[in-house]
Structure formats: C-alpha cells, structure tokens
Design a protein around this nucleic acid. Structure first.
Length: 884
RNA sequence: GCGGGCGUGGCGGAACUGGUAGACGCAAGGGACUUAAAAUCCCUUGGGCUUGGCCCGUGCGGGUUCGACUCCCGCCGCCCGCACCA
C-alpha cells in the first residue's frame, strides 16, 4: 500500500464540518412537511471542558439524529447549556471572576469542543438557561404557576449552613455538616417558595404505566419515589381530655386490619399535641429538643435506635371502649407524612416491634399464615414460635384474636374496618376516612444564591406578596455584585431589592431568592421548539414537535430531573403553554465511561496521561513518565476528577480524530452499560477507520472498479449473488439495530460486511463484471451504513467512490426483499436435541421432503440403527430434530 | 431490610418468539512481506480426549420440553436504587 493513502482525520473532519455548516444541512425548519422526529440528549452543565460521558451521550444521539434524517424525517436535534448553578459562584469566590463571564467563557470553549465532534446539531437554536431571554420566560411561567396556585409560599424546615448563609439540599449535608463550609448544619424554619408537584402525584404515578419506551428501572424508581400508600385516617378519642383540651388524635395507617393488635400510639416530636403537653412537662420538652438535635441523615437513621417518651395521655380503642392505649412521642415518627401520628401494632410492624420490646408494651399477633396450618395445634405452635422470635410478622394471612375480623383475609379485614369506622362517628365527624398518601413532597425551589433565575415577586409591607407584573419582566440579575463575603449577594446589593410596590407604589422589597437550577432544566426541551418565541412557548411549534421522541441521558437523573420535567409539562399544560402531559415518549439511559486507576506509592492518583503501560510476559505495569517509578494499577472505575482517571476528549480527537472516538464509544459495550475506555480499544477503532479508507480508496482506483452501478445488470454469478445477499441482509440488520439503539451490534454487523467486501479479490472482480458491480454496491452500502456513526470518514469515502453530493443527505438505502430470502438453506439437524448434521435444502421445501432428506443423512441412519424414529420435529426454515 | 438488574472463552460482548452457543472486536500464538521495525495480510484460538471422530460446556442444584443462555423453583455471587413513609 502506498503511504500517501493514509487517512488524515484532522483535515477531513474540518473540511466536512465546514461543508455541512456551509450547506446548513442540520438547520431545522419548523414548517418542513416531512414527519417530525425530536431527538434530544440531556444538555450539559458548562463546567469548562467536555468529558467522555458527554462524548458518549452526544455520539449516541447523533447517530439517531443522522439515521432518522436520512430515513426521511424532519429531525430536531438541538443543543444548549444548563448554565445556572453553584460552581459559577464558587469560581467567583475563589478566582475573583464574575459568574457570568466564567459561564459564558466555559460555554464558548465547550461549544468549540462539541463542534470538533461533528455532531449534526441545529446550532441556530442554541441557548443557555442563564440567557436573559430564557430566564425571563421562566419567570413568566412562575407567575402563571403562581396565578393558578401551582406555585406558593410556605414555612418549611430546611438545612441551613450558617457559614455560607444558604439552604442546603439533603444531599449537600454530609455527616451533619455543610459539604462546602464544613459547618454544623442547623435546622431553620424559613418561608420558601414551592411548586405544587403533589397536585399531580397520582397522575405522575399512573401515567408511568403508559411510558412503555422508558426503562422499567426508571419507572420503578419514580413509582417508589412518589410512594403511593392507600389507607385510613382514623381518630382516637383521648381519654380524660381535659388535660389538654384536645379531644382526639388522628393517625394514618395502611394496615387498619391490625387495629386489634394495637398497643400504643406514637406521635412525631413536632406534633401539636407533643407541643401542648411539653408546655407542662419539662422532661418531654427535653426529649423533643433532643430529637430535633438528632442527625437526620439517612446513614444515621439506619442505625438509630428508636426512642420514645410516654406523654401520659391515653386514647380509647375504637372497638374496645374499655381499653386504653398510651400515647408516646417517638423519634421515628415524621410530622411530614400522614398525620404525624401512628398506632403501633408491634406484632406486624418491625419498627413497632422494636419499640414495644424496648418499652415493655404488649405484642399481640392478629394475623397468622393459617394456610400453612392443618389444625389448631399448628396455630398454637406458630404463635409460640412467633412470640419467642425477634421479628414482626409482616406477611399475608388470616385475622385472629380480632373479634369480628376473625377468619377474614387481610384485604377483607381492611375493608371491614374501613366500612365500620366510616359509618361511626366521633364527635360530629366520621371516626375514619379512607385516604391515599404519597411520599412525594412539594418541590422547594428557593435558593439563597445569586447565579440563578430570580423569583419574580415583590414583598410589600402593605400589600403582602405581590407578583411582578408580566410587563415588568424580566427581573434581571444585577451585574454589580460582590462575592467577597458569604451569603446571597442579591440580599446585600445596595439597591437591587428596593423597588416600589406594583400595587400601592409604596416602598417594597424584591424576593432575593433565586430558583433551584432544576427548574431551568424542567422545560428547556419545550423552548427548543421555538427558542426565540416571545412567550415561553410557541404553541404551534410545541404542539408539532413534542413529545421528544427519544431522550438520552444518564441514569443519575432517573428521579429528580425526569420527574420535575414531567411535572412541568403538566403545569405548563394547565397554564396553556403546552398541550400534552408527557414530555419524553422514549427515554434511554446510557451507561458511564470507566477507566483503570493508577496510584502512586505515596497514595496520590496518577492520570492516564502521566503514565506509560509496559507489558512483559503478559503482565502489565504502569510507569510514571516523570519519575520512571512503578505505579500500582488499580481497579476500573467511573471516570472522575477525584481519581484522576479521566481522558480528555479533545486529546483523543486531536490525535485520532472524532470518528475514532465516536466509533470506539459505539463499539463493543451495549449503550446502557458502562464502557471501559482503553488505549487498546481506541487504537483498534483507529485501525478500523484506516482500514475502511484503504479498502475504499484501493477499490476506487483499481482497474476493476466498474464505471456504472448494478441497476442494469441482468445476471449475477453465485459469488456476486452471495455478496449481494450478505450486504442486503446486513443492511436490514443494521437498520433494525439503529432503530433499537443497539449500536454495538450494528458495529459488529458492519464489521462482518467489511470483512466480506475485503475478501473479494481484485483478480476475481476483474474476471466477473457482476461481482465487480456487487462489490461496488456492498462498499457503497457499507459507507452509507457507517455514515451516522463516523460521518466524516463516510463523506471522504463517498467522495472517493465518485459522488459529488453529501452522504449525510442521501436517503437511507432500502434492502431488496428478494435478496433477503434464500433459495437454499442450511438446516441444522439435531438428534435428541443435539446438533449432529446439516442439511442443505431448498427454502420452503415441504416438511415431507425435509423429513425424507433428513432420514437419508448418514448421521441419522447411524443413530437410528435400522429402527424407525420415535418422532421428527421440523421447524420450517430453522431446525430439524430427530428423536430416537 | 425492601425493590430491581446481572452472572456466557483470557477480556468487551453476540445469540430473534424456546431452535446450530461463543457472531464481531480486543488480547494471545504461529506464518508471509521487510536488511530491520512499524504498518498490512493469512492462519489458529471455550475445555478435554483414545482427534477424519467423540465427550463436556452459558454461576450452582433441580424441573418443564423433542430441544433451555432463554421459561419455572431453590441457592450462591456481584451491581444499582430506595430506606424509620406508618
């Protein structure tokens, strides 16, 4: 091979990127009449550099976009920036750079990096969520939500970092300390803004059933997160009520069937009844204070012991009027869930069991797995065993020791209790009502930060909370802010927050909180359909484009982002900004990019760029480039800054080209699983790129290269026909695999075709025109099939094959149905289910012919040894099984 | 603890609706070309045996079936999510 034929990715990639951009082939027109297809990858946070996770995500989306485009769709494939957030403010504090400058600088460099990848994006639609144009429309949405009651203000207990002067999300509290400042986090009651996501609890839950193009895993996670629980809210009468003036205590339970096993009630430390009693009970007051100091992090709760304090108050059992149940304040009861009070049935709830054991409360079994029993003595034995054990029985069964419920199943007993208590009264109201509770809470969106979307509200001493009039939008973030002290710069800005009340014109203050950045990403997909519209959406455009046909992103957003976006879509429908309820018809969660780790003797991590791998006798050793010292090769882990096992995409693109990076990302690993980035794998991908180029340029310059295509060719030699069959079969397979996002299998199929093409000797082509034509066809199909994955190389090959148009705009080829069916097939023949022979036979042969041919086979004759077969199973076109 | 997923060669993985297990790639070994190397090309590569053939083999043990990586039951291991939610 002559040396001049090496493919220069760098030159070719720049050239084709310029060409695509010049011809504007990826700019999307809303009025294009072809069927629409909206493909979206989760937009990036502009941290400064793209990472391999981005490369993988955007490569997958790009394959789908390019594939759907050549399949005749009007494809929307936009890109933007999730640009508000803490890192910009941290940078401002550390490096004295303005968050806005930092963010837009990062966007500029990341945009440049993304462009090197050759993505088929409509850059005309690009925006950043920190653009005034975007966040002003978001303020408009907020006002509409406020108007309809979907946004509201309430007091809430929050994690407060006293050093940074801000609210922290639960995930930002580590061992009770602020993740950034390290300060002990306080619980504070603050007035915060909320979105009423719980208005849609049930809808968000039930609609999951219809999202059949979402991974089950994600749907399940959302189901658990929403946490529907059907039960009964029931009131207990307080005995000797005069002590508190409170006459009843309401609990929520999903197990009303176990009411006869109740032995205590427990209320949350911040329950109103606890407060009332604590006023005259210093010991209880101390107990409550201790609970409040307690660490609320999940890790602590896991091992936390259950503590309670007897209030001395007693309640009356609804069906056993003479029985009194003690009321405890307990540290494991949450005021936010249900009524902040439960009845404890120790026999059938593990938590209650532990509590009862600790405080010596009765444990009465009222449900038994009776289907396991043959007689009464079995039940007695079971009860004895249960009482001796240390676990509650939470399984199914039949009611025992429960008066009128005895013998009923758990569901029937629940129903019977509900029916009776609904129809009896306590005071003036029914003693119980059926209720469905959800774990899902309203979404607190207030953040005491500068770099976010200002909440468009004004607080007036006379008029109270006054929304900013729509005509006064946007509420712009001031530029002149300082980050030299902790806290919210908006709050200490000398003039920004001081405004006249829109209602009374009196002196008033702006809301200085900004919105959680999850708000920004909850509707960007809708904005892309008409990014310059003067309203949040252009209804015609949004209705035409949405839902997103295929959304691709990381599993880490399975709950929060995807749930918020589903809520937002409903809230925007309720305020007439959208006309649908589910934003993403298809969701794909891609795996992460992992890499080996390298650790020096002193414990510091070395990056892949700092080491050299040496191989001796099959053993790999890492050597520090700088010091020549040996470095331990550690386990393969997700690429992360902390372990320094990252590979910079631009280094790879610089060295091998974008197509190599893209091809590697798509090969081998199934897209939903983690991919391990290896130097060897990248080299392999690069060799493939070079090989394709060599095959194409050799073929096109070969004397045997046919001038025309095979349209006019009447007859094909067997070799030519076989090649055509292979090519068309693989074309069909690759089309299917692309549609199903099985890129790794599509890659394998393309390798197969390339191998078949490369196996055709030039000498054979020279002597056989039909083979030369079939070879040319197979090569062209290969290039077209590769094009969505390695678009630059494909353009170069397409040009070399003699075409002057772009392969990116060529219609996707259709497999010839006649070539997909075989004349003769190779049928595996099994004897007793094990493959023993093969049978070459005409496709579609009658079963009797197959049977006769099978029986004539030597291996079959041998196995039968003269006897007739017991049975012959023929699965047409698939297999024959002879049972001897 | 609850819920979900996954276990296939030295490695990543493929295998339709239950129908030829190991496609394709990587790695390894052998060979060709070359003064040499790189690059490229060709061959071999699940294990075993008495090797023109046979036996075993998809985490382990059972089952259903003419036939099981695939379905069912019971284990073992790994990974992920949630977690005092009544």
């Amino acid at each position: 091979m002559s040396e001049g034929q090496r493919y220069s990715a760098k030159e070719a990639e720049r050239r084709w990127q310029d060409e695509w951009s010049k011809q504007r082939i990826f700019a999307t027109d809303n009025d294009d009449p072809r069927p629409k297809y909206y493909i979206l990858e989760m937009f990036p946070y502009p941290s400064g550099r793209i990472h391999m996770g981005h490369v993988r995500n955007y490569t997958m989306g790009d394959v789908v976009a390019r594939f759907m485009r050549v399949r005749g769709h009007n494809v929307l494939h936009p890109m933007g920036w999730d640009a508000f957030g803490m890192p910009a403010e941290n940078a401002a504090m550390q490096n004295r750079v303005h968050p806005k400058d930092w963010t837009y600088d990062n966007i500029a460099s990341m945009r440049g990096q993304l462009k090197l990848m050759g993505l088929s994006l409509d850059w005309d639609r690009e925006f950043a969520t920190c653009d005034i144009d975007y966040y002003s429309q978001q303020q408009r949405l907020f006002l509409d939500f406020y108007e309809t009651g979907l946004a509201y203000r309430k007091n809430a207990r929050v994690n407060w970092d006293p050093v940074d002067h801000t609210v922290l999300a639960n995930e930002q509290v580590i061992d009770g300390r602020g993740w950034r400042s390290g300060a002990l986090v306080e619980q504070r009651d603050l007035t915060q803004w909320f979105f009423r996501i719980t208005a849609f609890s049930d809808e968000l839950l039930t609609a999951l059933d219809h999202l059949d193009r979402w991974p089950d895993r994600v749907r399940l996670m959302q189901r658990n997160w929403i946490g529907r629980s059907d039960g009964l809210r029931l009131r207990f009468e307080i005995a000797e009520a005069k002590r508190t003036d409170i006459e009843d205590l309401e609990v929520f339970t999903s197990r009303p069937d176990t009411l006869f096993g109740a032995s205590f009630l427990a209320i949350a430390p911040d329950h109103p009844l606890a407060d009332t009693i604590a006023a005259t009970d210093p010991m209880l007051a101390d107990f409550i204070a201790a609970c409040r100091r307690g660490d609320t992090s999940a890790a602590t709760l896991e091992t936390a012991e259950k503590f309670g304090h007897d209030t001395g108050v007693k309640v009356v059992h609804p069906f056993r009027p003479r029985e009194r149940l003690p009321v405890y304040v307990a540290n494991f009861i949450l005021m936010e869930y249900g009524t902040g009070a439960v009845f404890g049935c120790p026999a059938h709830d593990q938590r209650d069991f532990e509590f009862a054991t600790k405080y010596g409360l009765p444990i009465r079994a009222v449900v038994a797995p009776v289907d396991r029993f043959d007689n009464e003595s079995d039940l007695v034995a079971w009860l004895e065993q249960f009482m001796a054990g240390e676990e509650a029985y939470v399984g199914d069964g039949q009611l025992i020791n429960s008066d009128f419920l005895d013998g009923l199943s758990v569901p029937d007993a629940k129903e019977e209790i509900a029916r009776r208590l609904e129809n009896s009264t306590l005071g003036d109201a029914p003693q119980a009502v059926r209720q469905t509770n959800y774990r899902l809470r309203d979404w607190g969106i207030s953040r005491q930060r500068y770099w976010g979307c200002p909440i468009p509200i004004i607080h007036c001493d006379n008029c109270g909370v006054v929304p900013v009039p729509i005509e006064d939008l946007p509420v712009k973030l001031p530029d002149d802010v300082s980050f030299d002290q902790p806290g919210n710069p908006l709050e200490r800005h000398p003039s920004w927050s001081h405004v006249a009340c829109p209602k009374c014109d009196g002196p008033a203050r702006r809301e200085t909180d900004t919105m959680d950045t999850f708000v920004d990403s909850s509707w960007y997909f809708a904005r892309f359909t008409a990014p310059r519209a003067s309203n949040p959406t252009d209804r015609a455009a949004a209705d035409a484009w949405l839902p997103v046909n295929q959304y691709i992103g990381g599993i880490e957003h399975a709950i929060l982002h995807l749930l918020y976006a589903r809520f937002f879509t409903r809230a925007m429908a309720a305020t007439d900004h959208l006309g649908l309820s589910e934003p993403f018809a298809g969701l794909f969660t891609q795996g992460m990019v992992a890499h080996e780790t390298y650790r020096r003797i002193d414990g510091t991590w070395a990056s892949p760029a700092e080491i050299v791998i040496e191989e001796k006798d099959g053993r790999r050793t890492a050597i520090d480039k700088a010091t020549s010292e040996a470095i331990e090769i550690g386990p393969i882990e997700k690429m992360s800054k902390s372990r320094r096992n990252t590979v910079d995409p631009t280094d790879i693109i610089e060295r091998y080209g974008a197509d190599t990076a893209r091809w590697f990302m798509l090969s081998d690993s199934p897209p939903e699983r983690d991919v391990i980035w290896t130097e060897g794998g990248v080299e392999g991908a690069h060799r493939f790129i070079q090989r394709i180029w060599r095959i194409v340029s050799d073929a096109a310059t070969d004397p045997a290269w046919p001038a025309g295509t095979l349209a006019a060719q009447q007859s094909f030699t067997p070799a030519a026909l076989e090649l055509r069959r292979t090519a068309h079969r693989i074309l069909k397979a690759v089309s299917d695999h692309f549609a199903a996002l099985r890129f790794n299998v599509a890659v394998a199929k393309i390798y197969q075709l390339v191998n078949a093409v490369a196996a055709v000797e030039p000498s054979a082509r020279r002597g056989d025109v039909s083979l030369a034509l079939a070879h040319r066809e197979a090569l062209e199909l290969t290039v077209q099939m590769m094009a969505p994955m390695v678009p630059h190389l494909a353009e170069s090959c397409w040009e070399t094959l003699g075409y002057s148009d772009l392969v990116a705009t060529r219609d996707w080829p259709q497999p010839d149905p006649a070539l997909l069916v075989e004349d003769t097939i190779l049928l595996p023949v099994q004897i007793n289910g094990k493959k023993r022979a093969e049978l070459t036979i005409t496709a579609g042969a009658a079963d009797s012919d197959v049977e006769n041919a099978t029986l004539a086979l030597e291996a079959v004759q041998k196995a039968l040894a003269g006897k007739p077969p017991r049975k012959i199973i023929i699965v047409p076109g698939r297999i024959v099984n002879v049972v001897v």
